[in-house]
Design a binder for these strands. Structure first.
Lengths: 104, 104
DNA sequence: ATCGTTCATCGCAAATATACGATAAAGATG
DNA sequence: CATCTTTATCGTATATTTGCGATGAACGAT
């Protein structure tokens, strides 16, 4: 965002936009699906399932961590990633609140 | 595990990411809320309610139109915008499908 | 026909996002 | 210890997004 006047938007609008931003790339959608299927997954295994370089996957994982949708636990030299279902639930509610407010 | 890197993203992953992208800016969230409150709204009225220049609001409207969440109907020199509730409903379902698949 | 209104688009600048190779850091292993 | 493995981060290149003033196109009114 260039010179946007973010103060003019509500916290709710910005939160929702932030959640949506985290979901706005197919790689990140795919990562969430991988984590839900495997429950817990080492970073390297995620990388193998993705059509992207390790550094790029790491960046997408970072973005998902930023909004709290996933967590990473260090396990020796590896990192175990898993969904944060609490935050996922909250995100789902936020989004549904918008849809309910807006139309359905 | 040698087949990595070759797979692409699925249509579903890309569709969902695209919907999320349309929702990934507070200005566009705000526009959806304005349209839901007013039901139908002339472009100029939306601009007046937004903390952004007319050209910028027009761009955000274009992005929402791109994914079909809103429609614009020309009415003389003005343009009447409204939600496309069918597409909104579909977007909501797509998103909920993900959340259901992924955790909740 | 001329003018004012409305809104999309153009052109540009700045900020962000995306991607990847290289490298660093941290732990495991011999 | 030296070395390998794993993953985050750095550096860099490119693409996309965001924002706004200026302009143009379409329309209604005078």
């Amino acid at each position: 965002m260039a010179k946007s006047k973010l103060e003019e938007f509500t916290q709710e609008e910005m939160n929702l936009a932030d959640i949506a931003k985290a979901l706005s790339h197919p790689a990140r959608i795919k990562i969430l699906k991988i984590l839900s299927a495997k429950n817990v997954c080492v970073c390297g295994d995620i990388v193998e399932l993705m059509p992207l370089a390790q550094a790029t996957v790491s960046q997408h994982l970072k973005e998902l961590k930023r909004v709290g949708l996933i967590e990473g636990e260090i396990d020796g030299p590896k990192v175990c990633y898993c969904l944060n279902t609490k935050v996922m639930e909250k995100a789902k509610e936020e989004i549904n609140k918008l849809f309910k407010k807006v139309c359905c």
